[in-house]
Design a protein around this nucleic acid. Structure first.
Lengths: 127, 127
DNA sequence: CAGTATCCTTTCCGATACTG
DNA sequence: CAGTATCGGAAAGGATACTG
């Protein structure tokens, strides 16, 4: 994008769509975890901590559909399924990490802004 | 972040939080619109198109709380309220734009991946 | 182990009506 | 003009039980 030029409305909408997908409660956690290497379903689940079985399955399916991860079923019993980032998924991890870095470095500023805002507006609220 | 090192779990969670905030249906559209210059409430509303009054008010309040925008009330009748990006908001627009660029440039790849995935999985679904 | 199916609660968000 | 208040439908997401 040219400096000074902001996103046009149509582009912004598509971006917003993707951001909504990726900005959901779990997607970034999953992609981040897989960024360190392949993981199986339950390993992934333990790594993330408090994700429900349902949401992990849904998130993984969406990421697979979007071409970000590969699902590899090992023909053993009991079955094992290994998830890995695709090349596309790795590419995605770059701007995501840049964004993540900014967020991590500025989180305290946001918290401060919130505290300040709340302080100035905690008046007259209830009876 | 060091290359090769992915985000740790705690950082990832904060980032995920911010992404969820920013990745909601309207935030990025509002910030993007304000990136081009200050706008008043209804001007912003027209620019974005189909946002409801309620969601615009909510989104603006959240952004103000996070220190991303300033709300300036002009003492005239009828009242006018002008919204502008803060310095912090402008800084935020950088990584957001980087992310947005990637998303815009790769949107077609995602669409293709989805179509391909759906093609391979449209079998045996109903009775 | 790796899921799917179902239920149920919570949250989101649009429509509408009203206010300073 | 710039909001707030209230309501109701839709969607997200957790808990639990079940399956290959």
């Amino acid at each position: 994008m040219l400096p000074g030029e902001q996103m046009d409305s149509a582009t912004c909408k598509r971006v917003s769509d993707l951001l909504a997908r990726v900005g959901d409660k779990w997607t970034l956690l999953v992609v981040g975890s897989l960024g360190a290497g392949p993981l199986r379903f339950n390993a992934l689940r333990r790594q993330i901590g408090d994700i429900s079985q349902k949401m992990l399955a849904t998130t993984l399916r969406n990421l697979e559909r979007d071409g970000m991860i590969n699902r590899h079923v090992l023909p053993v019993t009991p079955p094992q399924v290994e998830y890995t980032l695709t090349g596309f998924g790795c590419e995605f991890l770059r701007p995501a990490s840049a964004f993540a870095d900014w967020a991590a470095q500025n989180a305290h500023r946001i918290e401060h802004a919130r505290a300040s805002f709340d302080r100035q507006h905690r008046d007259v609220p209830p009876a």
